[in-house]
Simulated assay, not measured.
Amino acid sequence: MSEPITLACPHCHRRNRLAAERLDQTPRCGACKESLFIGAPVDLGTANFNAHANADLPLVVDFWASWCGPCKQFAPVFTQAAGTAEPRARLAKVDTEAAQELAARFAIRSIPTLLIMHKGKEVARLNGALPPAEFQRWLTNNLPGL
């Protein structure tokens, strides 16, 4: 049996410890009893970002804004990727207008900007939208293993 990993619930944002081999067994949150994987990006803001970013499960973040054309075009690609990236990673969206302090903290200068966070550290960054195949390739090449 491997070391347990931590991940945050997409519903209540509480931290959960789970054996890595149980990730693909439809685990539920110990606090709210909801599924730990929802097959869709999680909306994050200042209050709940750190719970996900500091977890052992890699976090792929799309910094976006509602007025951004490329962000709107990329949104379906990102949403589709959430279904295939789980349970290897959590995908999340941060609205830079609503969470300006997060945008400043990560020096977001253009949107969309994609970050991969793992255990509280940024491990990869990409500015701009990508077609689905290129985004999947970027994820494959940059997602840390568990």
Rank of each mutant, 00 (worst) to 15 (best):
P58W: 15
A19W: 04
C71F: 08
T113R: 04
L23I: 04
D56Q: 08
H13E: 06
A104I: 06
L143E: 14
L146F: 15
M117F: 15
Q100Y: 10
P76H: 00
D24A: 14
H11L: 09
R28Q: 06
N48F: 10
T113W: 15
C71K: 01
F74K: 00
C32H: 01
G120Q: 05
T6H: 06
S35A: 14
A47C: 06
E3S: 06
L102P: 00
E3N: 09
N16F: 07
A99Q: 10
L130V: 02
P27Y: 10
L146M: 12
V61A: 12
I5N: 03
A89V: 05
P27S: 09
P112R: 12
N127S: 14
P41N: 06
A107G: 09
D95E: 09
Q100N: 10
S66Q: 14
A51G: 13
T96E: 05
L102Q: 07
A31G: 06
S110C: 11
E34V: 00
A20I: 06
C29E: 08
K119Q: 15
A82I: 10
A81T: 03
S66R: 11
G128P: 05
R88C: 04
G128M: 05
A82S: 13
R105K: 09
L57W: 14
R105S: 10
L114P: 00
K121T: 12
K72G: 02
S2V: 11
L18K: 03
Q100I: 08
N141D: 13
P58Q: 13
L36A: 01
L18T: 09
L18S: 04
L126Q: 12
A40P: 08
D62P: 03
G45R: 10
R137A: 15
L36D: 01
P10C: 04
G69N: 04
G69P: 08
L36W: 00
I116T: 13
G45I: 11
P131F: 12
C71E: 00
G83N: 02
L114E: 01
T140A: 13
D56S: 13
N142T: 03
A75Y: 04
Q73T: 07
C29N: 11
G45M: 15
Q136L: 13
L18E: 04
H118P: 02
